[in-house]
Simulated scan of single mutants.
Amino acid sequence: MNVRAIFIDMDGTLLKASNIISDRNREAINSLVNQGIKVFLATGRHYEVTVPYHKELRLSTPMICLNGAAIHDAETGRAIQMKTVQLNEERFHHLTAEKPCNVMIHTASGLYCKETNEEIEYWTKVGQIPPRYFGDLRLANYQDVLKYSVRTGAPSPELSTLFKKEAEVIDWEDGFELVAPNVSKWSAIKSLLTEYGISPNEVVAIGDGPNDIEMLRHVGTGVAMGNASEKVKAAAHFVTGHHENDGLAEFIERYLLKSFESYAI
């Protein structure tokens, strides 16, 4: 099979729990690039906490951020595509206020948060840009929302389902996220494949989360990490090792580096 591109999730896939890229993963990706395969990052993160890793890998491809709501140019960082989500704000804040949770709103101009936490402190350290606002989000003057993140600390389908008529819902073990209808990593991938003249059959995608399911299903070869849930694994063609054990590099070394011609689904 002729593979021309690979789309790689970050958290739980490229990165260890310590938020570092292992030497083995880095070397495997560099080998792919040297082999002429285009390597893309496709993440739920916003641009500022994606680009340092993109630069570390010396990639020149656009970055898919915020679950496909934004695509950023590698050289300038400019958003070359943005898909905003429109909610009934009064209803959203009323419903989320009824349950203890943190709310993070990713906009075209920055991050707005109900309160801080370790995740936001990490984003600020890595991205070097603090949130634009902390506090009661009903009083915040924000616009052009790309993604809402609601962190409840537990699965919350009874709450997330209330937004399914307005947004694309991604349920996590600690809450849920909302993006515009029909927006996903896969929708962003389709845009880039058209631009580069690459067929989905020539693409590998690898990830571990519910926001990766669509891309795993629709590319030529979808790969789930060993640390993924059973639902994510069921959407993939292959399951590789755990992210703490360099499962990404394991798959690349076994199937994509030079010997890929002998591999078939």
Rank of each mutant, 00 (worst) to 15 (best):
M1Q: 11
M1W: 10
R4G: 11
I6T: 09
F7Q: 01
G12A: 06
G12Y: 05
L14H: 00
K16D: 06
K16T: 14
A17E: 06
S18Y: 04
S18V: 08
D23M: 02
R26Y: 00
I29T: 03
G36P: 14
I37V: 15
K38H: 13
A42H: 03
T43C: 08
T50H: 08
P52M: 09
Y53V: 03
H54Q: 12
P62T: 05
M63R: 00
C65T: 04
N67H: 15
N67G: 10
N67M: 10
A69I: 07
I71K: 03
I71E: 03
D73G: 15
E75N: 15
T76F: 04
G77P: 04
A79M: 12
Q81S: 08
T84H: 05
N88H: 02
H93I: 06
H93C: 09
H93Q: 07
H94M: 13
T96F: 05
A97E: 05
E98R: 07
C101I: 04
V103R: 10
H106M: 11
T107R: 01
A108D: 05
S109L: 05
C113H: 03
C113I: 02
E119Y: 12
E119S: 13
I120Y: 05
W123A: 00
W123P: 02
W123M: 01
V126S: 01
G127V: 04
Q128I: 11
Q128F: 11
Y133W: 05
F134Q: 06
R138A: 10
Q143P: 12
V145T: 07
L146R: 09
V150G: 14
T152Y: 12
P155M: 11
P157D: 14
L159D: 04
S160G: 08
F163M: 15
K164D: 11
V169S: 09
V169N: 06
V169M: 12
I170T: 14
D171N: 08
W172L: 13
D174Q: 11
F176Q: 10
F176C: 07
E177P: 14
V179Q: 06
P181F: 10
S184Y: 15
K185Y: 14
S187D: 13
A188V: 15
L192N: 05
L192V: 06
L193G: 09
T194L: 08
P200I: 12
V203R: 03
V204I: 12
I206K: 02
I206T: 02
D208S: 07
P210N: 14
N211D: 13
E214T: 10
E214I: 09
R217T: 08
V219L: 10
G220R: 10
A224S: 09
K231Y: 12
K233T: 09
F238N: 00
T240Y: 12
T240K: 09
T240L: 11
H242M: 05
A249V: 12
E250W: 10
F251L: 00
R254Y: 02
L257P: 00
E261R: 15
E261V: 08
